[in-house]
Design a protein around this nucleic acid. Structure first.
Lengths: 214, 214
DNA sequence: GTGTACCGATACGCTTGAGTACCGGTACAC
DNA sequence: GTGTACCGGTACTCAAGCGTATCGGTACAC
């Protein structure tokens, strides 16, 4: 595997004497991701992106060779830390906060993942970019959260449910639209954590059920 | 919205003096679904289906007006009862069996759902067909399973985790490829049920360990 | 002021696939 | 046997979209 497209061709704005500012680039990326969310990967057209950003197709093709490379670059630029700063000293509370945070981008992220779900099988670079943008960071953060809980002795290190928590959270998050037609909002996810994740981990949920009043 | 395409145009074989036997129709449906799984909805071509089934494009278009209608018909014909006959008298055992059963088509069903995930937003008939084929039956069966458990007194009727069990099962099932790159096989799902679903429901996986101590 | 290199616009070539039209062959009805 | 109606095959029209080429305009370097 040759890693020829690592950092170079992604954010071209700084190099190559391009007149495209990082802010402008951000507009391109936002536009293409939004178009993907709305129409699906295959239906996204470079012309459409060019039109909504009031640039020309040539401009896009000058920066990125092909459509998948363009999309991959947009995904990589979209990487964010989701659960940053969540460290309350209590695993249950951390999970609640993470659920609430996840619910806030549930809509956008889920639609993106859904729309790219299959396009990914064709282009490996795209697949990797998607994983790195929308999957791996959150998983890693969840695992750290759990590890801290274990370290504090809240959950035994060999608790069998531990390894399934990321899949549970992620699964419910992504699958809810399919089941009920609506995206998993923060309240739903917090209730899910309360009702299923914490009990599975042997953590006692709030007895009085005072889950959502900030 | 008038439901003009209900039963008539789906299975045309019997009507219209078509020489296409139900078995032949089944071949068409299998072919298109397999092509969807492999290439995604958008990349499926009527010509490809015609070629793999050694029929002509005309034949397909004679029976189904458009590609989405054809695919919707294929989905509707694909409806199956997944967890039929699972009723052991124990909710835990039922869930284990369901997990094992689900793992057996995990691959095919998940790929199909993934591939159609976004195509569905464009065509409402397709969306409904997909839900009726791959989502609603399994959910309904799971709910019945849970209801029986409640009726037998294994789980209190107001147990908060009850409503999340289908989402958990479905979520983990569908999301595993995204997380780990491999489909959720039967073993994985059974371990998940054991480690997370049963404890969440307050059912003890093995007698030596009571997880709820509030 | 001059030149270079990028920008936006437009037009084009090329491929692909949906859906249609037409054709000869053939099974089944009668 | 004769006719009808469907089958498979092929050729076609039409639209869309990728990626390329070309052109005038313009910002910035020097």
């Amino acid at each position: 595997m040759t890693s020829q497209a690592e950092d170079g061709p992604d954010t071209v704005a700084a190099s190559r004497r391009s007149k495209i500012t990082p802010e402008r680039e951000r507009e391109f990326f936002d536009a293409v991701l939004e178009q993907i969310r709305e129409c699906g990967y295959d239906s996204v057209t470079m012309e459409g992106v060019a039109h909504t950003t009031r640039c020309s197709k040539s401009t896009l093709y000058r920066q990125w060779k092909t459509k998948p490379q363009f999309v991959a670059a947009a995904l990589r630029a979209n990487r964010k830390v989701r659960f940053a700063g969540i460290d309350t000293g209590s695993l249950a509370e951390d999970l609640r906060l993470a659920a609430r945070a996840a619910g806030d981008w549930s809509d956008k992220d889920t639609r993106l993942l859904q729309a790219l779900g299959h396009a990914v099988t064709a282009d490996h670079e795209l697949a990797q970019a998607l994983r790195e943008a929308l999957v791996l960071p959150e998983i890693a953060e969840l695992r750290e959260m759990l590890a801290r809980g274990v370290e504090r002795g809240e959950v035994p290190a060999d608790h069998p449910a531990l390894e399934y928590v990321p899949a549970m959270m992620f699964g419910v998050l992504r699958v809810r639209p399919v089941l009920s037609g609506q995206y998993a909002d923060a309240d739903y996810l917090v209730r899910f954590v309360e009702a299923a994740v914490l009990p599975a981990l042997g953590l006692t949920p709030d007895p009085g059920r005072r889950s959502r009043d900030d």
